[in-house]
């Protein structure tokens, strides 16, 4: 009987932490694997995305303001920087993250 009671208390505590939004520790290794795979799938397109947006914005501004290629050059560079910054945000160690925010 007493064993039943403790196991119920344990389950109740587990359920309460789950509702409070804190995951139980046991699930961690599996989740970690999945997110590393997800990280690898993300990195390349994050960099490409920045460049594509930079080129599109630059091309649009040139068309609108009748410049030849001034904004295209500037925004392609800025877009490339944004892409590299996206990848850096993705892979930077968590302690730097903690310090910054």
């Amino acid at each position: 009987m007493t064993e039943d009671k403790t196991s119920f208390d344990e389950r109740l505590r587990a359920a309460q932490t789950r509702v409070a939004g804190k995951p139980p520790e046991t699930e961690q290794p599996d989740r970690e694997d999945k997110s590393i795979l997800a990280l690898a799938a993300r990195a390349g397109s994050e960099m490409l995305g920045g460049l594509v947006v930079g080129v599109l914005v630059g091309w649009g501004l040139d068309r609108w303001l009748h410049f030849r290629a001034l904004f295209l050059v500037l925004f392609a560079l800025a877009g490339g920087c944004a892409g590299i910054m996206n990848v850096w945000r993705l892979v930077k160690p968590p302690d730097i993250n903690g310090k910054e925010s």
Binding site: G49, V52, V53, C81, G83
Partner: peptide
């Protein structure tokens, strides 16, 4: 650069 980085989100997500 920050604005471009923000705007790149839907693009990289869809690409």
């Amino acid at each position: 650069i920050e604005i471009l980085s923000f705007l790149s989100r839907p693009v990289s997500l869809s690409i």
